[in-house]
Each structure stands twice: as C-alpha cells, then as structure tokens.
Design a protein around this nucleic acid. Structure first.
Length: 471
RNA sequence: GGUGCCAUACCCAAGUGGUAAGGGAAAGGUCUGCAAAACCUUGAUGCAUCGGUUCGAAUCCGAUUGGCACCUCCA
C-alpha cells in the first residue's frame, strides 16, 4: 500500500517513493542544546518518530540522521549575533562544552522516555567542522560567496530560485524589515546569510576553529547541509523539522546545498506544526517553561503526553493545557485497563485471519499511511477494543500491531497487577469487611476513608472487596 | 506592512463533495447498606456568519467576523 505524505515543497499530498528502492534516507533537524527541550520541541520529534514508524511498518528501511546543534546557533542572523550556548555558559559559568553535553543527555532522556526510536546516526556539529569548511569552499569556488566585515556570506542573488520552499516573495520581504531588527550592513542582500564567522561583537567565542577565512565558527545553516550530505549523500529522500524552519533555516539549507552540488537536494520536505499553550506559541522565555520533566513532576506519565500528541494531526496546531493532558491520561489508562482485562481473559498474540480482524488492520494502515492520520487510528483502536465480535486474542494482537505506530508500550502491559499492598492496608480492609458483615456502616465508611487517605481505593464487587492503588 | 493557516458539541479533536470518527467530561440506568469502581445507554438536523456553485457542501468559490502563526533566534 502506498504511503501518502504532504510535501511542503509542492504543498500537495504525494505518493512516497524513495530514491533507492525501499531504503529511505531521513534527516531531521535536531535539538539546540543550550537548554531543556520544551514539550513543543518534543512534539516535533514525536511527529518524526511517527513518520519513521510508519515507513518501517510499510516495509521500508530507514536511515535516520539527526544533528545536535552544539555551536553556531545565534540569537540573531547578523554578524553581531550572540551564540545561545555562549550566553548560557556566561550565565552558569560552565563551559560551552559542558552545557552542550548536559543538555544533549537531557534531550535523549526525554527521547527515550517518550519511547521514540533513536536515530541511526546522531551527529554533533562540532564533530563536522571540516565537512562544513569543505562545503563552504565548494560554494566559494562556484562563486556563491563573498567576504564582508570578516565573515563569509552566501549570496542569494547567485542563484535563481532562492526561497522556493517557503514561496517567499523577495521584493516584499526586502521592504518589510522590522524596525527593532538591526540591519547587517555587511550584507549585499538583506537575505544573505553567514556561512563562516570570524567576528562577533559578543566577546571571545570559546569554540573556534581554523579555516581558510580565519579562525572562527560556522553559521547555523551550513551544519545541516554538510552533515546530511555527509551521511545521506548529495540527494536524499526526506528532510523534516518544525514549521518555523521553512522560511529561513530550510530555505537557506536548500540554497547552499543545491548551489554546491548543482543537484536537487531533498525530495520530500515534511514539517510539524506548533504546539500552543493558552497564550499562543510556546517559548522558552515566555510563561511557564513546559518540559517533560515538569509534566512528570505533576504526576503524568510520558506516555500520557505521547497519547495526547497522537490525538492531533501533526500538520495542525494543537492546544496544550493540563486539562487536555489529563483527558489523554484518563483515555490512555482506560486503554491499558481494557488490555489488562483481555490478558486476564487469556488473550495471546496470534496471527490474524478473520475477515473482521483483517479489515481493522487494513483500515488502520490506510489511515496511518494517509499522511500519518494518527487521530483516526486512535479511533480504530477504540473500535477494536469495543467490538464484541472480536475475540480477546484478536483484539490483543491488533492492539500490539497498532502499537508499532503508537509506541504506547502496550506490549509491556501485564495480565494482573502485581501490586503488593502493605499489611496495614490489608488489615484495614479486613476490618472493614468485618464491619460490613456486622452492618456497622459508620465504621466501614471510616475505614474506607482511612484507606483512601493512604492512597488506596476500595472496590466492592459481588465476589468481595479489593484494593487498588490510586493513580 | 507582507505571507500563510484555522474557526466542528461543555472541552480536546478527526473528517476536503454524498449526508457529522474518537476521547474526556456530563446525564440516566444496572449493581451497592451508601458510595466508589465496573458495565450499559444517551449526545451536534448541524460544522463562525452571509451569499454563491451543485442533484447534493462542514467539505468548492466569494465576502464578513474572530483567532493563530510566520516574515526576527525559535520545534
């Protein structure tokens, strides 16, 4: 079955066809490691994980490359831009290397907690300075660069299709420079961008390398071009990232990559939409800094956030609130409980053969392969769980199949809750049962309240009373 | 100022021409000493407003209103 993906370049749904048969080259713009990732950042990585899982389930092999931006990510695009890592280093009095390392580790901790499949290659910008210098040399040889004020710039007027991804209207952009943004007087065209810095107004950079243009550091955009081509070749299949990368970062990547090779660089561009909070766009500087760690501190499981993201389509803005997250948590727990019940009924993983089960599987594939229709597949999941015509093993097996996309760790659910209750709680429960038998309702209710205060829920069933740990 | 996106029930959210997925919340019921839990049932005659195209529109076109994003580091 074909996989349909929305390509930002064409603004259309396209049938996905890799360059090499069934092998897919996938590059995703990784994190900037000067701070924790917030849950909006993580949403984009979740979308990429879903994409990768969909390709894998569809029979492709995926070579996934992700970069770590540990240098050159400036707060501004002019030659006076300050490096985010440098600024954080000044604030915390740690070295930029320590900061980058710390937040890289923190990033992958979140990555694993959200059950995302790790990339095949994780590459740090600082390990690939030579590839960047080589690429700049090629651009220089091709007449696409100029040196001004000590920095090497890419000249967008040296190519004729600048801005094709974002469909930029260059004339109107030139006149729309905002007042508070200081113009970089070194640029011939205001949309030109820096490939190599040797000058920065903001003191000494800790990270500097020798280059043909002097000791300095690379611009942000060149890193993705250099590393993606290094690992995936001069033309590859998919490049993805957040929607904000379209007008500047990806636009500049395309310009320099295609100017250097003279070839079409990437065939499919996929972008994830933003997660919004109550005030609009989520940012690290405004309002509550929402990290996965904060969610966990508030009692949520990373899978709650994963389920929450599954509920919205990746190309739509999604509104985050703790209320919505709690909704997702309840829903997710209900799924887990139903699966637990299936296991209690003796459900096992089997090969699906019935017409009904195969129909569910086919519908699921159709939905996920249609531009990652995760909200629809969640509905498929509920349809399966509630369908009386399916037997427990069929339901369970379908759930596990679906989970190859969902990644909700449904395969880790055990048949019975292996919970051990403290003797104190069991004693209280026993006393309550006695009280009930003696029809001493006030005492029974008091004991129930005590257990509740201890964090245990009492469940009365026809076969007796039992405890459950409150979640 | 320029560009683009969106507007679906109490909330979140699918659905791009054929008569409104799903989840949560809520209500009712069964059960219960009473609760909780569990299980069952119920939900938009309508998809911001107005007009148009069509046999037929939430879905296409136009206008209006409202919200958001990007153009500046940002996932």
């Amino acid at each position: 079955m074909p996989v349909l993906l929305y390509n930002t370049m064409s603004r259309k749904l396209e049938v996905f066809q890799p360059i090499h048969d069934t092998e897919v080259g996938l590059y995703s713009c990784g994190p900037t490691v000067y701070n924790y990732a917030h849950i909006g950042n993580l949403r984009t990585f979740l979308f990429e994980d879903l994409l990768k899982r969909t390709l894998l389930l569809s029979g492709f092999s995926v070579n996934h490359v992700m970069n770590i931006t540990d240098v050159g990510h400036l707060t501004g695009d002019g030659d006076d831009g300050e490096d985010k890592l440098e600024r954080m280093a000044q604030k915390t009095h740690e070295s930029v290397w320590e900061i980058a390392r710390f937040y890289t580790e923190a990033f992958f901790k979140d990555y694993d907690a959200l059950n995302m499949i790790r990339p095949n290659v994780v590459c740090k910008a600082t390990d690939h300075i030579q590839q960047m210098i080589d690429l700049i040399k090629r651009l220089e040889a091709g007449g696409h660069t100029y040196v001004s004020g000590g920095n090497v710039y890419f000249s967008i007027d040296s190519i004729d299709d600048y801005g094709k991804l974002a469909r930029l209207n260059l004339d109107s952009l030139k006149t729309a420079v905002r007042e508070e943004v200081e113009e970089d007087g070194n640029k011939k065209n205001s949309k030109d961008f820096v490939l190599w810095f040797t000058k920065s107004k903001h003191g000494q950079q800790a990270m500097m390398w020798d280059s043909p243009w002097g000791r300095g550091f690379p611009g942000w955009h060149i890193e993705c071009s250099a590393m993606s081509m290094h690992y995936l070749g001069e033309s590859f299949d998919i490049h993805c990232g957040g929607i904000d990368a379209i007008p500047v970062h990806h636009t500049n990547e395309i310009a320099q990559s295609e100017a250097a090779t003279g070839k079409k660089w990437v065939n499919y561009w996929l972008h994830g939409e933003f997660l919004l909070d109550e005030t609009g766009k989520m940012s690290k500087s405004k309002g509550e800094f929402l990290t996965l760690g904060l969610l966990i501190d508030k009692g949520f499981d990373p899978m709650d956030y994963r389920y929450f993201c599954l509920g919205g389509h990746y190309r739509s803005q999604l509104k985050f609130s703790f209320e919505s997250l709690a909704t997702a948590r309840t829903a997710r727990k209900n799924v887990y409980e139903r699966i637990q019940n299936l296991l209690s009924q003796g459900a096992k993983q089997i090969e699906l053969t019935s017409t009904a089960a195969l129909a569910y599987k086919a519908a699921f594939l159709e939905h996920i392969q249609n531009d990652l229709g995760t909200p629809r597949t969640l509905a498929d999941l509920w349809g399966v769980l509630k369908d009386e015509a399916l037997d427990p093993s069929e339901k369970y097996s379908l759930c596990l199949f679906f989970d190859r996309i969902f990644g909700l760790r449904l395969d880790g659910i055990a048949a019975v809750r292996a919970e051990v209750f403290p003797q104190e709680a069991l004693d209280l429960l026993a006393r309550r049962t006695e009280a009930k038998q003696a029809r001493n309702w006030p005492l029974a209710d008091t004991l129930r309240a005590e257990l509740d205060a201890m964090g245990y829920l009492v469940k009365d069933t026809p076969s007796g009373s039992s405890l459950e740990k409150k979640m």
